[in-house]
């Protein structure tokens, strides 16, 4: 639920980092916190357990610049990774404007990724939000690990594409982030599908963290334009 405040000339948007436990959602926020100038960000709030697992959420507000005289403020949230915190996970999705799904690339975490993705779809639809029509990007994290699954396998499992129903959208849309790939394309079966933009990342080093954040923020602002 983006909010435009004409009195303070601010546009406020909410972005949620979703994904399986220990996938790197909090690490993404920590990296943004460390890199962004203190004048343009607020405090990083963490409601975590003693073992540093996110209990309720992590929160970081950042300003990403000015458009038409309005400051763009993004509120970044992470959800708890573990499924038994689903009640609090769902609460964080309330009023969300854009989603980043942080997948753990390790082969052993494939099932956990799929479970979290299904859970995201379920929780969103309970609020009446349609994930396929919202600003949504996927980040494949931990690309540096030797047991990381190939991108192609991760894409097939987590981002196989959803059917495009609107005839006006049935045309190839090149992926601006990966040369030679399409975000909207026609399968050999004749069906048109659309996929979410994806990014490779090693969040502990910061690789791909800002690419992901910029992509989702841009989609959110464009959805308001």
């Amino acid at each position: 639920m983006s909010m435009i405040n004409y009195a303070s000339r601010e546009i406020n948007c909410k972005i949620v980092y979703y994904g399986p436990g220990l996938g790197g959602k909090t690490t993404n926020l920590e990296h943004v916190y460390g890199k962004v100038s203190p004048d343009t960000r607020g405090k990083l709030i963490s409601l975590a357990t003693e073992t540093e697992r996110t209990l309720f959420f992590d929160f970081l507000p950042v300003d990403l610049g000015t458009i038409r005289g309005f400051k763009t403020r993004f509120h970044l949230y992470t959800v708890p990774g573990q499924v038994y915190y689903n009640a609090s996970r769902k609460l964080i999705l309330k009023g969300v404007d854009g989603i980043v799904f942080v997948a753990d690339s390790q082969i052993e975490r494939m099932e956990a990724n799929q479970e979290a993705m299904q859970n995201l779809y379920d929780n969103m639809s309970e609020y009446g939000y349609d994930l396929t029509r919202m600003p949504f990007v996927i980040q494949y994290n931990k690309r540096d690990l030797p047991n990381a699954a190939p991108i192609r396998d991760l894409q097939a499992a987590l981002n196989p594409g959803w059917e495009v129903g609107d005839p006006s959208r049935m045309r190839n849309a090149p992926d601006p982030y990966h040369q030679g790939e399409q975000l909207v394309e026609q399968l050999t079966s004749g069906e048109w599908v659309e996929r979410a933009p994806y990014f490779d990342a090693v969040a502990v080093n910061g690789d791909g963290v800002f690419d992901t954040l910029k992509a989702v923020s841009k989609l959110v602002l464009k959805s308001l334009a």
Binding site: M1, S2, M3, I4, N5, Y6, A7, K14, K94, G95, V96, D97, S125, Y127, G128, Y129, D130, R133, M134, S223, L224
Partner: peptide, 11 residues
């Protein structure tokens, strides 16, 4: 089904 959360603004 709405796309997502509604946007709102105040003057």
């Amino acid at each position: 089904m709405p796309v997502g959360a509604a946007s709102w603004s105040f003057t």
